[in-house]
Design a protein around this nucleic acid. Structure first.
Lengths: 156, 156
DNA sequence: TGATATTAAGATAAACACATCCTTTGTAGC
DNA sequence: GCTACAAAGGATGTGTTTATCTTAATATCA
């Protein structure tokens, strides 16, 4: 409805990484398998997140991707700005180049409060919060039946 | 941010038609010029709105497009359902095939109220309301400098 | 009936998003 | 250094959205 496939992969991948032990590199292949995402495409997405300074990447044996130090504090807004671009929260609903409080389109007044709520939500939600939700076992990160990130899973 | 270009054209075109006298066919060319939209593409969009039963179309001399009888009561939701498809208000933010109150993704709980507000807005806003806004002269329907749908314009 | 104006419909093209493939580069461990 | 491994980078393919072009169908009017 709102987010491109690329952004969806990015968010899912980062939440997944949030459920994993920090400082241990996670393989692109592992993430892709756990999400049911195409590995070669996901690689490009992760690369992009590296350029956006959300991840570290390490090559060679023992390589993979790691969240940055304060990775748990990453917000959905930070992710979306990288994958969708800055226009995401700014552009007019009707696609007008010029649309502001001063010179509004007929939807502007009605849309503004909703846009504000979306922005607030994106800024509020952090990887820590979302990863914790997934680890609680009450929330699904993928459609794959195998996937489960609850504490129970960690004991098997 | 949310709506495809096609949907934006559809909404703009229908609002424009709402500002014109009822029962008089409006040419695709006229609409395209007033919106600054590509005429051949807009023709396809209008065709699609005809199939969705929002418009009548007439061929030949004196032809064009007309809003249906109760055209002013058309809601944005009706338009969006035609141009974006039914998934628009249903699909999961993270793209999961299975995501519901029972089996939610980690965003589901937070996103649901926003989605509800969007749906409410789309259902509330009618062409009558939006066309009146444009005709008041306080709201812009296009980026074109020439365009003005206020009462003043009608006197010139 | 014929000339003209208009939408309908189908084919084509261009741009972009999504996805894959292959080669190169860097790194760890031996 | 050698080898295996993993990400980086570039080229390519596929599908969808956006846009254009051409022809057909239809309606008006002289």
């Amino acid at each position: 409805m709102i987010l491109s496939r690329t952004t969806q992969y990015a968010i899912q991948a980062l939440i997944y990484m949030g459920t994993q032990p920090r400082g241990v590199p996670v393989l692109n292949r592992t993430i892709a398998e756990n999400l049911g995402a195409p590995p070669t495409y996901l690689a490009k997405v992760l690369q992009n997140l590296c350029r956006g300074n959300l991840l570290y990447s390490y090559r060679g044996k023992q390589g993979g991707f790691c969240l940055r130090e304060e990775g748990g504090k990453i917000t959905l807004m930070q992710i979306v700005l990288i994958t969708e671009g800055p226009g995401f929260t700014e552009d007019c609903v009707l696609g007008l180049k010029i649309c502001s409080d001063k010179v509004p389109c007929p939807m502007h007044v009605n849309w503004s409060p909703i846009k504000q709520e979306i922005v607030r939500l994106l800024k509020d939600q952090t990887l820590d919060i979302l990863a914790a939700a997934v680890m609680s076992g009450k929330y699904q990160l993928t459609d794959l039946p195998a996937a489960a990130f609850s504490e129970l899973k960690l004991r098997t």
